[in-house]
Write a protein that binds this DNA or RNA. Structure first.
Lengths: 230, 230
DNA sequence: ATGATGACCGTCCGTTCGGTCAGTAATCAA
DNA sequence: TTGATTACTGACCGAACGGACGGTCATCAT
């Protein structure tokens, strides 16, 4: 409330860096310590997914970071750029997985399964960014750009499905485009409920045991390729 | 732009009712003709799903309806109530499907498949409402209420999966909760891409032939229960 | 000591937001 | 013609929005 509050916090405290739970810890960089673009981006993505992009004001973000609103604009040119950076990171991961799969030998069905597993790995590794990406619906220019890249990814997976059907490895009585959408619909839905294990053994209700959500990928592949029925 | 625009549009025109593409057509009701709650709700849901709930202003909605912002508040008490009505309609459909399935005889796996098919039917029949429901993430009180009902539905499906596993009809090597989430993750994802056929035969890229997205439900059940592999 | 660097503050702006209110306009039944 | 019913207008309010601005402050290499 008082105008001196922010200043007094900045000047007080025994340690040099800001207290809080934030992670502005950087390694011996010049200049005044504090947040950098990365720490701001991660907090922004967290808030965007928690409360929605539009519902999150820059002042909300500033409060969460423990700095003022104007300080954010020292690191980023606009609110939309935060969204662009976040979706870009998720898409980069997905596309690098697609590129790796594309350069792979073997049957299409095996490469498709590999793409599913790698996509799950990206989902788990970059969960906040992927979650945000999957909630984007094309309101702003940045969102439309992200949607276009997502469509390109979908088309790649669809072409893989078509190849596998042509190889006689996948059932031909489902439209390949629909197959691809349902397959990655499962993967995408996991962004809304999968949470990495934080501690002990494989407890109930969780998701993936092993590193990087291996159980999640395993479940999706079993369900999709072999079917649920015994 | 000009302040007289709204008035001139309302006063002009040959017909008594509002022109536009809106559907205020009602059947011989008393009072001044125009929009009723239903027509406003449908337009609101359309805009909410197109541009997002938070990104859609009440003035956006009023423009789309061809009336003023304050006229909306004659039909509805708040913006949030529109959201409550919309999600409520979708959930009512889903829960009536669940209730019908619950009172059904037969093996759990068959009732589960029936629930999937009926859920797809609800999805298709109330596509705008269900789509909006699935995008809700718990920011407001109305959204949290919708989320709670969604969780109850998920728990019902999970219990059905557990029964089917106990019956020996579903593979036991996937956690039942995860199975349920993946299964309905496919159904939910369809809300983002399924569009009912508007015209001729089963063209490519579309979704469901037959009435009510039968092909969609068929594809999901084949994929989930029998698997994609030949 | 000094200057470059990077992080940050406080204040203000034009605009838009959800919502209110008193009054008006069109339709039906009596 | 009157009155009940329903739909609607236009002016307005307080608050919050994204963003811009000039100035300040701590830290580094020199």
């Amino acid at each position: 409330m008082s105008p001196a509050q922010g200043r007094s916090r900045a000047g007080a405290g025994p340690g040099p860096g800001p207290g809080r739970g934030g992670r502005p810890g950087r390694g011996g960089r010049p200049g005044r310590p504090g947040h950098d673009l990365e720490s701001i981006l991660r907090t922004a993505v967290r808030l965007f997914t928690e409360r929605g992009y539009d519902a999150t004001s820059m002042e909300d973000l500033s409060r969460a970071l423990g700095i003022t609103k104007s300080a954010i604009y020292h690191h980023v040119s606009s609110k939309e750029e935060l969204l662009r950076l976040a979706t870009g990171r998720a898409l980069d991961g997905l596309f690098s997985a697609a590129a790796a799969v594309e350069a792979l030998p073997g049957r299409a069905i095996d490469r498709l399964e590999r793409l599913v597993r790698d996509s799950v790995a990206v989902l788990v590794a970059e969960l906040p960014f992927v979650t945000l990406l999957l909630r984007v619906h094309g309101n702003t220019a940045a969102e439309r750009e992200a949607l276009a890249r997502r469509r390109a990814f979908d088309q790649f997976t669809a072409s893989l499905v078509k190849q596998a059907v042509a190889d006689g490895d996948l059932r031909p009585d489902i439209d390949p485009v629909m197959t691809a959408k349902l397959l990655f619909g499962m993967v995408s839905s996991a962004a809304e409920w999968y949470r990495p294990e934080r501690g002990g053994g494989s407890g109930p209700g969780g998701g993936g045991s092993g590193p990087g959500g291996g159980a999640l990928a395993e479940a999706i592949c079993k369900l999709a390729f072999e079917g649920l029925r015994t």
